[in-house]
Design a protein around this nucleic acid. Sequence first.
DNA 1: GTCATGTACGAAAACGTTTTAGTTAGTGTC
DNA 2: GACACTAACTAAAACGTTTTCGTACATGAC
Lengths: 336, 336
Amino acid sequence: MVSMKDVAKECGVSVATVSKALNDYSDVGEEKRREIKETARRMGYMPNLSARALKTKRTYNLGILFVDEAQSGLTHDYFSSIIESFKVTAEAKGYDITFVNCSMPRHGRSYYEHCRYRGLEGIVIACIDFYTPQTQELIRSDLPVVTIDYVFDGRTSVASDNVRGMRELMEYICGLGHRKIAYIHGMDSSTTRDRLTSFYRVLSDYGIEPPEEYVRQAAYRDTEETERLSGELLDLPDPPTCIMCPDDFSALGCIRAAQARGLRIPEDISVVGYDGITLAQVLEPRLTTVHQDTRTIGRRAAEELISLVENPRTTFAEKILVPGELVQGASVKKII
Amino acid sequence: MVSMKDVAKECGVSVATVSKALNDYSDVGEEKRREIKETARRMGYMPNLSARALKTKRTYNLGILFVDEAQSGLTHDYFSSIIESFKVTAEAKGYDITFVNCSMPRHGRSYYEHCRYRGLEGIVIACIDFYTPQTQELIRSDLPVVTIDYVFDGRTSVASDNVRGMRELMEYICGLGHRKIAYIHGMDSSTTRDRLTSFYRVLSDYGIEPPEEYVRQAAYRDTEETERLSGELLDLPDPPTCIMCPDDFSALGCIRAAQARGLRIPEDISVVGYDGITLAQVLEPRLTTVHQDTRTIGRRAAEELISLVENPRTTFAEKILVPGELVQGASVKKII
DNA sequence: GTCATGTACGAAAACGTTTTAGTTAGTGTC
DNA sequence: GACACTAACTAAAACGTTTTCGTACATGAC
């Protein structure tokens, strides 16, 4: 690898001058600067990031902590899209992205320690159990951190506005005349709680009190469980007219349960999801859902994190809520 | 940050001794070694990767080049699973994974240059247009490289055995009595060519010559195009009894086309996909497909790449074929 | 006592940058 | 011609490691 020393020798100047020329310092002559830059290019000079980082303490490397409880990891449309958007934004600003190694207990390093070791300048945390000691250590650490869909005091978070999204979805459904609405909600999390809040609030606005058996719990993206619970709901003496699923993917389970009973969607039973992933648009009938703005979530997370990294003093923790968008598919029937 | 110097001072020894103790060199006393390690732990010492890399030229950082033509990036089940598996394997071996920044033309650095700059020790290339100058430069470079689903002379590649997978799928379908089989294949690539090869070969084994209009081309994962083409196939005067789709996801388009015409699957028309993603198992009816062993592909890619990195001399380029598995869903009807 | 051998440690160079604190030469002022 | 000032450059230290080559001392052989 050709280093500054080589360029310096070739140009007959000192290493310091090369460094300054390349970094556009003011105290180097216009002509020399051009010559040095040209020679560096011609010789295929590449700055050595390790050496630079050693001096400047800057790596331009951001970490992303991301574990899927279901081992499916990246195979999670919602989070994958967020990460993709985060990646694009960060890369455009000159940062690289590396995964925070999560299978490191072997080497006896915690998440936080590993981040420090790897020289990550900031971390975005998504799709993870926020309550493990490892994660908490990281969140409470001195590293810049942005959390996705999880609010921690004093930390910047970017979250989908589930309260508003669910409200719009519910008002749409109620507006179409539905009164018997079942909700198979996901496992407890702030996301789930927000959605439940709007679920109950809108029902209450409409003067509806849902029977206890209309509200069930399933793991997110678990089609089998949602299929089973949907079946139970459909088999009720007084079944709902609309079933809300934890997310778009698990809605497939609900659809199966309906099909197994010879019920048509939406004529016999209305089904809605949440997320607005591509799948929702290509099902027949198109699934009514709330599209979460993953692009904005990822982008904002990157912007905030980089701002935190570059201006540690002047940047304050913010709670950013990103609105979603109601997607009126064809899976909810209008009741008179 | 506490450095070796601090530990050395605390222990009253030299920096050299600390380094040796920590790295388990033989020429440091048993007792001192223990004391130094203990002190380092107590003081919260973290090795500085930049400094180490500067000396050793080792970063323990692997790159992953991954661009989805459709901007969907990580939202691609097949490749996402491979990456996930790659990540897990590499991390277990002490390596970190960083994305090769693809939006770098701004800074005027090619993929290869950026890899060097970032100090990536090896690159896995997946899901990308292999024929761009940038990619070719990287493949032909001096960096250890493993390609996924693409064979380049002198380079290690890991690929799904599409020839075998397609053969098994075709033999299964023909075995069920189908003779009029249409194939909407993906865009030209080695993957597509392998599958087409087996498609024609098995048909020929069965003495079948498919009419020209039974073989169409669509982009992978493009449900709309597959829906349109499926429609055309179904509207043919002599329609096929089975339609093979580019992949599981695009099969949704085929299913829509069938539903739109009031056709039932598999009673009126058989449909098959390829990939074996989760979606295939939760559709009703379950989709017949070939499950590609993404776990093995990712794991093998990581193993090979690391071997290439650690033993540049003794490791030779290999072409690894990973067999898939026929998934007998319920979307193909038995014809008498 | 001399010599070889081995063990435990340290000094110092090196890796490739950045940056501080000069140094030199040129320019203009009076 | 002395002086201050600036522009353009350099020397050298520093960042935190690793590693080579010592050195010092002890041990044992003769």
